[in-house]
Amino acid sequence: MGFNRHGKRKGKFVFIFFAILLGCGLLIALLQYLWNTLLTDIFGLRAISYWEALGLFILSRILFGRGFGKSKNGFRRNQPLEESMSEEDREKLKSEWRKRFEEKWKC
């Protein structure tokens, strides 16, 4: 009985692994397709191969995303800055912004 449960868990893991691989492969193929159909006509860039699209995807995740895992600063990704601050820090930030904008926009 325990062997059967372990086998199901292993099968589920293998299915999820291959589903993720297939999803990533389709995402890279979509990136390649969009690049080759849009950017070659709009900006006159050359067409790219599948592996160049993979490199472009990885580079864009590194530069514009937050990497591939958890956020680097420990906060939730979509959490506003004010929610992660203490009340004292929040007031200090607000007063600093007021001071900057009052100086800049005085009439």
Rank of each mutant, 00 (worst) to 15 (best):
Gly2Trp: 03
Asn4His: 07
Arg5Leu: 12
Arg5Asn: 08
Arg5Ile: 05
His6Gln: 13
His6Lys: 14
Gly7Trp: 11
Lys8Glu: 15
Arg9His: 13
Arg9Asp: 10
Lys10Gly: 00
Lys10Arg: 14
Lys10Glu: 10
Ile16Lys: 13
Ala19Met: 14
Ile20Val: 15
Ile20His: 14
Leu21Met: 15
Leu21Ile: 14
Leu22Cys: 13
Gly23Asn: 06
Gly23Thr: 03
Leu27Thr: 12
Ile28Met: 02
Ala29Asn: 07
Leu30Arg: 13
Gln32Cys: 03
Gln32Tyr: 02
Asn36Lys: 01
Thr37Leu: 10
Thr37Asn: 13
Thr37Asp: 14
Leu38Asn: 12
Leu38Arg: 15
Leu39Gly: 01
Leu39Glu: 11
Thr40Glu: 02
Thr40Phe: 02
Thr40Asp: 03
Thr40Pro: 02
Thr40Val: 04
Asp41Lys: 11
Asp41Val: 08
Ile42Thr: 05
Ile42Gln: 07
Phe43His: 14
Leu45Asp: 11
Leu45Gly: 00
Leu45Ala: 11
Arg46Leu: 03
Arg46Tyr: 11
Ala47Ile: 02
Ala47Pro: 04
Ala47Trp: 05
Ala47Arg: 09
Ser49Gln: 06
Ser49Trp: 10
Tyr50Val: 05
Glu52His: 07
Leu54Tyr: 11
Leu54Ile: 08
Gly55Trp: 12
Leu56Ser: 10
Leu56Thr: 07
Leu56Arg: 09
Leu56Trp: 09
Phe57Cys: 04
Ile58Ala: 12
Leu59Asn: 03
Ser60Gly: 04
Arg61Gly: 01
Ile62Lys: 12
Ile62Met: 08
Phe64Trp: 15
Gly65Arg: 05
Gly65Glu: 08
Arg66Met: 06
Gly67Asn: 02
Phe68Lys: 06
Phe68Asn: 06
Ser71Phe: 11
Lys72Ile: 04
Asn73His: 06
Asn73Met: 01
Gly74Glu: 06
Phe75Asn: 14
Arg76Glu: 15
Arg77Leu: 14
Arg77Pro: 02
Arg77Cys: 01
Asn78Ser: 12
Asn78Pro: 00
Gln79Met: 14
Gln79Trp: 10
Leu81Gly: 03
Ser84Phe: 07
Glu87Ala: 06
Glu88Gln: 11
Asp89His: 00
Asp89Arg: 03
Asp89Trp: 00
Arg90Asn: 01
Lys92Cys: 02
Lys92Arg: 08
Lys92Asn: 09
Leu93Glu: 09
Leu93Pro: 00
Lys94Tyr: 09
Lys94Thr: 03
Lys94Ser: 02
Ser95Leu: 13
Ser95Ile: 09
Glu96Tyr: 15
Trp97Asn: 05
Trp97Leu: 12
Trp97Ile: 08
Trp97Ser: 03
Arg98Glu: 10
Lys99Pro: 00
Arg100Ser: 04
Arg100Trp: 08
Phe101Thr: 01
Phe101Ala: 01
Glu102Asp: 15
Glu102Ala: 09
Glu103Asp: 13
Lys104Ile: 10
Lys104Gln: 15
Trp105Gln: 07
Lys106Gln: 15
Lys106Asp: 11
Cys107Asp: 15
